[in-house]
Amino acid sequence: MKGTVDITAETDKREISDDVKKLTILNLEEGDEGEYTASTSPAQKFQVQVVDCIGSSTAATPGLCQGKPGGRIKLALSDGTASPIAWKKATDKITANNSKYPGGVDKATLTIKNLDDEDEAKFTGGANGEGEHFSVQVADCFGGDTGTTVTCEGKQGKDLKLRISGSVTSGSVTWAKVDGTFPGGCEKPGPKDEGLQLKTLTAPDAGTYKATYDGKTVSFTVSIPGGGGGGGGGGGRGNTTDTVVVRTKPRDENGQGGGGSVLSYSPALLVTVTLVHLLLQLAA
């Protein structure tokens, strides 16, 4: 049971073993949180919480918590019985702030909202804010293991932040662009340049970037769908041929509408069409 409701096996969501002794919850989401009961004798209860990362008792290997800018992340203590529970960011105790830490700062889970670069820090939680360690990282795209390449999709005119996942033990991270010119105006957030913030993406920013640190190299392939021509062509159209794109409007959820067309003109063709319309009006 979940709460007071009997549950059954459900494709893509729950699996119950043949001997009914094991329940597997698939594709976890917040709606799966709650108290589950197995009708053994005596009954056995399970409190399910869905979190992004769990703390580590070792500061050298903290729980890794990765989130995207503007998103949120939930940290959880592996031992929720500590008392009184408090949280620290670096060495400062976190105080109540519902707009940043909804759900409170005195529970076994800490939710951080509206993630930004300021949230990149070491967090600790437990009795009086001590005991379990977390490393919070914020980026649009995180690097994998050394020697691997991850694919990062950006948007034309928007910022894109790349970041290594590992920690830097000596020196700082060196960033390089494999194909084309390294973009100007970018930033390298982090005390050891762990991130690369590409500003206001344009077509030439697409390509492969490499982050080198501690003898390791991680690669990121940045793509910008709809960004126009290749590396040297700027953000314009991929060719010079004027075209008219016709898109069919989909029917709505009630099956109404549809069948019509939306015409999308390239700028040059739109001027031509406008002039033709004016000439037709004058001729009339």
Rank of each mutant, 00 (worst) to 15 (best):
K199E: 07
G259M: 14
G131H: 01
N27P: 02
G80T: 09
G71W: 09
G154A: 10
Q47T: 12
R163K: 09
K177L: 01
L270Y: 09
G233N: 13
Q197Y: 10
G258V: 11
L275W: 06
T61R: 02
A176C: 08
D52Q: 01
V178T: 13
W87E: 02
R14K: 11
T272H: 14
F220S: 02
Q47P: 01
D159N: 15
D52V: 06
F182L: 12
G154R: 04
G166T: 02
S172E: 15
T200V: 09
T174L: 12
V138T: 03
D6W: 10
T221I: 07
A59S: 14
E118D: 14
L77F: 10
V244G: 08
T37L: 07
G126W: 02
S83P: 02
F123L: 06
I7Y: 00
T8D: 14
A96Q: 10
L201K: 00
L201C: 06
D242K: 11
D32C: 07
G231A: 14
P183Q: 03
Q256M: 09
Y265T: 05
Q156R: 13
D193T: 13
G227D: 00
T240Y: 08
C152E: 00
A96V: 13
K22D: 12
A43C: 10
V168R: 03
K93T: 15
